[in-house]
């Protein structure tokens, strides 16, 4: 089936099997391998991207469902060599270790801050309930998002 969509500002059109997930489409067809797969049950959040501006789990969306949509992945967040403030904050506050959950965490953080520019620690933790990190204990991820919020609001 033919789909066309915008990913990170670029227009794409491809023939895909209906059963192809949006994650597979991004990774296998567009070679955007920053979006990861960590589970089978929409639980881990490693595959999080923005679909028409909101965070979704791309492993649970068929590429055909995204036909006509706008997708932003981790690769589309930085402006050239300038990291997005959330990316910058993760770097500054050691919000990542192995890096595998990181793209999903960052994309989810974008959604959290879009909806709530000044979240409390509790609100950030609640906002991350759909993302597993096995390395950081979340401590520095939460701190990174707090600092990103400050920076964005400054």
């Amino acid at each position: 089936m033919k789909i066309s969509l915008t990913v990170n500002g670029k227009q794409y059109a491809h023939e895909v099997e209906p059963r192809m997930s949006l994650t597979h489409y991004l990774r296998e067809v567009l070679n955007l391998t920053g979006t990861h797969i960590g589970c089978d049950t929409s639980s881990c959040g490693a595959c999080t991207v923005l679909l028409d501006g909101v965070a979704v789990k791309s492993c649970t969306i068929l590429a055909v469902q995204a036909d006509g949509c706008e997708v932003t992945t981790i690769e589309g967040l930085a402006q050239g060599s300038d990291l997005h403030p959330i990316q910058e904050a993760f770097r500054e506050h050691h919000g990542l270790q192995c890096g595998f959950c990181t793209p999903g965490m960052v994309m989810t953080a974008v959604d959290i801050l879009q909806n709530n520019p000044n979240p409390s620690e509790e609100e950030i933790r609640h906002g991350l309930e759909g993302n597993f990190c096995r390395c950081t204990g979340y401590h520095n991820i939460v701190k990174s998002i707090q600092h990103a919020a400050e920076k964005i609001n400054a």
């Binding site: 989810t108 959604d111 959290i112 906002g127 309930e129 759909g130």
Partner: peptide
């Protein structure tokens, strides 16, 4: 229900 991403979709 679920989480931020699941509720979005």
């Amino acid at each position: 229900i679920g989480d931020v991403q699941v509720r979005n979709r």
